[in-house]
């Protein structure tokens, strides 16, 4: 424990050597722990829903993601964790081509949803986003009624011809999102009038109204209170029965609670992907250990 004690109280006196040493020691965490040549753990599964290989993302000259390969299994909840700026949100946004909206962003690699190449130029992106839905950090309901918020997707995708069908889709989606009982009497009041947690569940209802196969969630609970968070987490485990879910979260406890497998990103690389239990009790890689025990990040 000697070195640890030194680290705890670095002697920052007049001595330059001691200063340098203290700074160097603070840096040792990342210096002494090289990136693995390939991802540690088990990033691949049999019969994946999404198969992602050698994904590289550039913002202009800046490479944000370095050769990430992983699978997302059917009806699986995968969580992506890592310190700020490690590329987890960037990676998530590749999965339904959300990055297309950023001009300087380029994506390379083989990304597939079942057999469909996601970056096939002939692919209809709107249709892709119906198959791979997304829920964002801040609830962003349309400035329309609760009903119209949910009905918007099915209408533009032509999923319902009659009013009766549309009613049914709206009710089902709100039921699945656990919001029906709270809003059934005021379906035509504005969605923006709901509380933050309800708004987020409304956004989830809106996402699942078009029957997506995969739901991507980018820190869906970071703007919510603990009770609303608990409801969303409950919802995630219920939704995983019918959908495949990938979730980016800053709360490690949340990743531990909701996901089956956890992927740890560090400076644009996928360091480790393993069963969530393994990651949180006995991670294989030192960087994962250092991050989840709060030694940096």
């Amino acid at each position: 424990m000697e070195t640890a004690q030194q680290l705890d109280k670095p002697s920052l006196g007049n001595n330059d050597a001691a200063k340098d040493k203290a700074i160097k020691e603070q840096d040792t965490m990342t210096q002494d722990t090289p990136y693995p040549d390939q991802t540690v753990g088990s990033p691949y599964v049999d019969d994946p829903k999404m198969r992602l290989r050698d994904v590289e993302v550039f913002y202009g000259d800046n490479q944000a993601i370095h050769g990430v390969s992983l699978d997302i299994g059917k009806n699986e909840v995968v969580s992506l964790i890592g310190p700020s700026g490690c590329g987890k949100s960037t990676f998530l946004r590749c999965l339904n081509r959300m990055n297309d909206t950023i001009d300087i962003c380029r994506v390379r690699g083989d990304l597939r949803l079942e057999d469909q190449d996601l970056y096939d130029p002939k692919l209809d992106v709107v249709e892709l986003r119906a198959r791979v839905g997304m829920v964002f950090q801040k609830p962003n309901p349309f400035p329309k009624s609760i009903y119209d918020n949910v009905a918007y997707g099915p209408r533009i995708h032509g999923l319902a011809n009659k009013k009766y069908d549309l009613d049914e889709i709206v009710e089902n989606s709100l039921q699945k999102a656990g919001l029906w009982n709270e809003v059934k009497d005021r379906l035509h009041s504005p969605g923006t009038g709901l509380s933050g947690g309800q708004q987020q569940r409304l956004c989830i209802a809106r996402t699942i109204a078009v029957s997506p196969e995969v739901v991507l969630m980018d820190e869906p609970c970071s703007a919510l209170d603990p009770i609303a968070t608990a409801k969303i987490e409950e919802l995630i485990s219920e939704l995983s029965e019918s959908y495949t879910i990938a979730i980016v979260t800053h709360s490690m406890q949340q990743a531990a609670r909701v996901s089956h497998r956890t992927a740890y990103f560090h400076l644009g690389r996928l360091i480790e992907m393993n069963d969530t239990d393994t990651v949180f009790t006995k991670p294989e890689h030192d960087l994962t250990e250092a991050y989840i025990t709060g030694r940096f990040g």
Partner: peptide, 16 residues
């Protein structure tokens, strides 16, 4: 990095 160093957390309140 040694995994078994328990006083290297970013949070001093945790190390203690």
């Amino acid at each position: 990095m040694d995994r078994m160093h328990f006083c290297e957390h970013s949070s001093y309140q945790f190390n203690q």
